[in-house]
Design a protein around this nucleic acid. Structure first.
Lengths: 342, 342
DNA sequence: CTGTTAGCGCATTCAA
DNA sequence: TTGAATGCGCTAACAG
C-alpha cells in the first residue's frame, strides 16, 4: 500500500533516496539514512507496485509458461503426471529466481504474441509446441524464448530448446529388446507426444535394428488413439487370436500400463507371452505389475534446465550451448522376457 | 507495441477517442471515426500495456493461484494427478473469463500478501491451505479470496470455500463396507490431505457405524507416511501374520493402489482376504486390478466452481451461498468383497 | 550524499 | 461527438 513517496515523506528524505535504499545503491546513501529508511520500509511492509515498474522499465518480471493444447480436445498437458512435474519444477525455479509465473494454455501463436506484448514478459517457456508454431513465435518475438521438447523444421535458425535424448531412448530400448531375442516389435506413439519426438525415438529404434544388420519397417510404427475404446480395440487386434508381436513398445508409461492390464485380463501373460515397455519412468511404471521396463527421464531436471537457460538469456549471460539434450537411462525391470524362439 | 497515442495520431483523432473505441463506448464516437479507429487498431495489432492499466486502475486482471507446499518436502500439490486436473481446469476458466493466471507455491502467508500488493491481484484462489493460514490471509486482504478444500477453525468469519462433501464420502464408503459385512476396517489418511479434510471423512465413517448402532474407535484411524519404505512397513504389519482387518480404506486412490499391489505381491488376495477402497476416483483407480471401489469427485468441476465464485465476488455479483460443497459418488467396482463371517 | 524532474501508457474528469 | 489535462508509482538522468 505504501508508496516510495509516502515512505520518503515519513523518513523526511526524497523519493530518490528511498529508491536508492530499495535498490541497494548503498554507496549513495549515508549509513544513518539507510538505516532509518530501511526500518520504515520494513515497518510499512513496502511492496513495489509492479504496474509502475512495468510502465517505467517497459518490462515485467513475469515469465510466461505456455502449454499448448489440442484444439479439439480441451485438454492441456497438465493431465499427464510427467508434465505436471515439469511445470511444478518450472514454478519453483522461476519463484526462486525472483520472477513470477504466468501460466497459459493455448493453441494459437497470436495469443502468445499478445500475451508478451500486453505483459511485457521477461521471457517465455513453451512446452510441447508444434514446430511450425514455434518458428512463428521465435521469429516475431524479441524476448528470450526457451522451448521444451520442441522439434523444429530445419530452417537454419538457432533455437533454445531443452530436449530429451529421444533418439538414444529409442535406441537403448530397442537394443535391449533385441538382446532379449525380440524382433517382432510394435512401436506405439501416443497422439499427445508430438510427431517430431516420436519420430526421433523411432529413429533410434531403427538404428538399433540397423546395428544388428536388420531392418525395421515403418509399418511397425503406430499411433495410439486418444479414445479409450479405440485403444482397447487396438490391444485386442494385437492379441487375437495370437499375438503377432513378441514385444510392444509404448512411448508412454501410462499406455504401457494400460496394455499390460488388458493383456492380463485377457489371459495373455506379460512378459510370458508378450513383453511390454514404456517411456518416461513415471509413477505408472512403478505402480503396475510386472514393473515396467522403461526409459527414465528426470522431469524436475527438465524444468530446471529450461528456467536456467531462460534466465541466462534474460541476463544476457553466455550460454554453453544454444540447446540442451537431457540424458535418458534404460530402466530394466520385469515387463520384458526372453522372446520365444520362432 | 503501438500505444493509444500513436494510434490516435495515425487516425487523426485524440487519444480519448481511441480509448472510447477500445472500451466500446460507441455512443461517444461517430460511426465513421469508430470504423476508422477500429481498422487501425486491428492493423497495428494494438495490445494494451497492462502495466499502465494496473497503474491507472490500481488493479490488475491477474488472478493469483496459490498452492501450498509442505515446508519440509519441496513438493507442491502438482505432483498429484487430481490436483493437476483442478489446476488445469482453473487455468481454462480464468483464461476464458479474460483474466490471467499467476501460479505460485509457498507455505508462508506473507508471500501471499506481498504478491497481492505487488501485482494488485484481482482475486486469489488458495488450494489446500492450512486453516490457520487461511484465516490470516482472509483477514488481511481486501481482494476476493476463494479457498479450495479448506477446513477452518470456526471463527465466525464467512469464508468462500469450494469444498467437497467429505463427510458424505466417508459415510457412503463406510456404509457400503458395513453392508458387505466389514466391521474390522482401518482408515488411512495420507499426510498430504489436510487434517481437517481427513477428519471430516472420518466423521462420516463414524456416523455410518453409529447408524448401525456400532462404534468406530479413533484407533482405527491412521496417517500414512510420505516415505515409501515406511508405508511398506505399514502394509507389512497389516498383513503379517494374519490381516487384523478385513478392509483397508484409503483416502487416496494412489495409496489404495499401492496397498493392493503390496498385498498381491505377498500372497494376500484382494478382495478375497482383504478389501481395499480409495478416494477421488482418479486415473489410478481405473488402472489398478482389481478395479478400485472408491469415492468419485469431479476435479474439473471443482476448478470451475472456484473460478466462478471468484469472478462473482470480483464483479460484486451476489452469491447464492458463501461456499459450495461438491457432491461425491460412491463407485462400486471390484476391490471389495464380502467379509468372511467371524 | 541528496533532491528535482520528466516521462512510461492509460483512465478519467472536465471542458469545448 | 471530440479533445486537453491530470495522476497513478516508479525509473533514471540530471542538478545540486
Amino acid at each position: 500500500m505504501a508508496t516510495i513517496k509516502q515512505i520518503a515523506e515519513k523518513a523526511g528524505v526524497s523519493p530518490t533516496t528511498v529508491a536508492n535504499v530499495i535498490h541497494g545503491r548503498t554507496a549513495r546513501v549515508s549509513p544513518e539514512t539507510l538505516e532509518k529508511v530501511r526500518a520504515i520500509l520494513d515497518r510499512e511492509k513496502y511492496a513495489p507496485n509492479m504496474g509502475a515498474i512495468m510502465l517505467a522499465r517497459s518490462s515485467s518480471r513475469i515469465i510466461g509458461v505456455i502449454m499448448f493444447r489440442e484444439p479439439r480436445r480441451n485438454e492441456t498437458v497438465l493431465e499427464d503426471p510427467f508434465s505436471s512435474k515439469v511445470i511444478g519444477s518450472i514454478e519453483r525455479e522461476i519463484r526462486e529466481a525472483g520472477y513470477y509465473m504466468m501460466l497459459h494454455a493455448t493453441d494459437h501463436e497470436e495469443d502468445v504474441l499478445r500475451l508478451v506484448a500486453k505483459w511485457k514478459l521477461a521471457g517465455l517457456i513453451l512446452i510441447w509446441v508444434p514446430g511450425e508454431i514455434a518458428g512463428i513465435i521465435r521469429r516475431s518475438v524479441e524476448t528470450p524464448v526457451v522451448f521444451i521438447d520442441c522439434v523444429f523444421d530445419e530452417d537454419g535458425q538457432e533455437y533454445h530448446n531443452v530436449a530429451l535424448d529421444d533418439e538414444k531412448g529409442g535406441f537403448e530400448l530397442t537394443r535391449y529388446l533385441l538382446s532379449m531375442g525380440h524382433e517382432r516389435i510394435a512401436f506405439f506413439a501416443d497422439s499427445a507426444s508430438w510427431p517430431g519426438t516420436a519420430d526421433l525415438r523411432f529413429g533410434g529404434c531403427r538404428r538399433a535394428f540397423a546395428e544388428e544388420g536388420k531392418i525395421l519397417g515403418n509399418d511397425r510404427f503406430m499411433v495410439l488413439s486418444k479414445d479409450f475404446g479405440e485403444r482397447q480395440e487396438t490391444y485386442r487386434k494385437l492379441t487375437v487370436p495370437e499375438p503377432p508381436f513378441t514385444a510392444l513398445a509404448f512411448f508412454s508409461d501410462y499406455y504401457a500400463a494400460e496394455a499390460i492390464i488388458y493383456c492380463q485380463e485377457h489371459g495373455i501373460e506379460v512378459p510370458g507371452r508378450v513383453s511390454v515397455t514404456g517411456f518416461d519412468d513415471n509413477i505408472f511404471a512403478r505402480l503396475v505389475r510386472p514393473r515396467l521396463t522403461t526409459v527414465y527421464q528426470d522431469a524436475a531436471l527438465r524444468g530446471q534446465q529450461a528456467v536456467a537457460m531462460l534466465l541466462a538469456l534474460i541476463r544476457g549471460e553466455p550460454l554453453e550451448s544454444p540447446s540442451v539434450r537431457s540424458p535418458v537411462t534404460l530402466k530394466v525391470r520385469e515387463s520384458v522376457g526372453k522372446a520365444a524362439r520362432d
